[in-house]
Simulated scan of single mutants.
Amino acid sequence: MKADPTVQRKLLDLAALDAELARAEHRRRTLPEQTAVEEAETVLRARRDAVVRARTSVSDLGRDVAKLEQEVAQVSAREQRDRGLMDSGSVSAKQMTDLSHELDTLARRRGVLEDSQLEAMERLDAAETDLAHEQAALEEAETVLADAVERRDGVLGDIEVIETRRGAERTELAASLPEDLLALYDQQRARSGTGAGELIGARCGACRLEMDRSELRDIAAAAPDDVVRCEQCGAIVVRTSKAGNA
C-alpha cells in the first residue's frame, strides 16, 4: 500500500485522538465516583429499611399502649360503678361483700395493667427515639448520595465534553485520509488497540518494542510513500525524523 508521507503522519494525530478517547471510555467504566454512588445507594437502602422497621415498632407499641389505656379505663369504670352501688345503700349485705371483693380484684387488675402500660410507654419512648435516630441517619445517607451523584455527574460531564470534542476532531481527520489507509488503521486498532505508531530510534511507538537490525534495514529501504508495518504488533509504522538507522 502507498500513501503520501504527510498523510501517513496524520495517522499519529489519529492515534493520539483514539488513545484519548479510549482513556475517556476507560475512565467512564472505572469511575471511583460511580463506586461511591453505588456504596451510598447501598447505605441508603439499609437506612430506609431501618426506618421502616423503626416505624413498624413505634406503630405496634403505640397500639399496645392504646389497648392498655382502654383496658385501664374499662377497669376504672367498673370500679366507679361498683363504688357507686356501694355508696347508694341500695344493695344487700351479701352484695356489699361481693362488691368489696370485686373492687379488690379490680384494683389488683388495674395495678397490673398500669404497670404494663408504663412499661409499654417506656418502650414506645425508646422506639420513638430510635426512629428519630434512624430518620436522621436516613437524611444523612440521602445527602451523601446526592453529593456522590453530583460529583459523578460532574466527572461524566467532563468526559462527555472530551468525547464530543475529540470525537468530532477524529471524524474530521478520518475523512481526510484515504479509505484504504483508514481501513487498514482501523482494522489494526480493532485487533490490538493501536493502529499506528511513530518509529522512534529503533522502537515501535505502538507496541514499544525494539526492532531488530533486519527489520530496520527493510524499513529504511522502503520508499517514503510505502506503508510499512511493525513485524511484532502489525501496527502501521510512521517514519519521522525520529526514526533510527539500521
Rank of each mutant, 00 (worst) to 15 (best):
P5Y: 08
T6M: 10
Q8V: 08
R9V: 04
R9D: 05
R9I: 01
L11P: 07
L12Y: 01
A16C: 04
D18V: 00
A19V: 01
E20Y: 02
A24K: 04
A24C: 14
R27K: 13
R28I: 07
R28G: 00
R28D: 13
R28S: 09
P32F: 10
V37A: 01
E38F: 09
E38C: 01
E39H: 10
A40H: 00
R47D: 03
A50H: 03
A50P: 02
A50F: 01
A50S: 05
V51G: 00
V52D: 07
V58M: 02
S59T: 11
D60Q: 14
R63Y: 08
V65I: 03
V65H: 05
K67G: 15
L68I: 08
E69I: 07
Q70W: 14
A73V: 09
V75Q: 01
V75S: 00
S76A: 09
S76I: 12
R78C: 02
E79Q: 14
Q80D: 13
G84V: 01
L85K: 12
L85Y: 05
D87A: 08
S88W: 05
S88D: 10
V91Y: 13
S92Q: 06
A93I: 04
A93K: 08
Q95R: 14
S100K: 14
H101A: 13
D104W: 00
L106V: 02
L106P: 04
L113W: 01
D115Q: 13
Q117S: 08
D125C: 00
A126K: 11
A126N: 12
A127C: 01
Q135N: 05
E139Y: 06
E140S: 12
E142L: 13
L145W: 09
D147G: 02
R152S: 11
R152L: 09
G154A: 11
L156F: 03
D158E: 12
E160T: 10
T164Y: 06
R165W: 07
R170H: 06
T171M: 09
A175S: 15
S176M: 06
S176L: 15
L177C: 05
L184N: 10
Y185F: 11
Y185N: 06
Q188F: 04
Q188M: 12
Q188W: 07
T194H: 12
G195T: 02
E198M: 01
E198F: 04
L199W: 05
G201R: 07
R203T: 14
A206Q: 03
R208G: 11
E210Q: 14
M211L: 07
M211D: 09
D212R: 09
L216R: 15
I219A: 04
A220W: 14
A221G: 10
A223V: 10
P224I: 10
D225Q: 11
D225M: 07
E231R: 09
I236V: 12
V238Y: 06
N245G: 15
A246P: 12
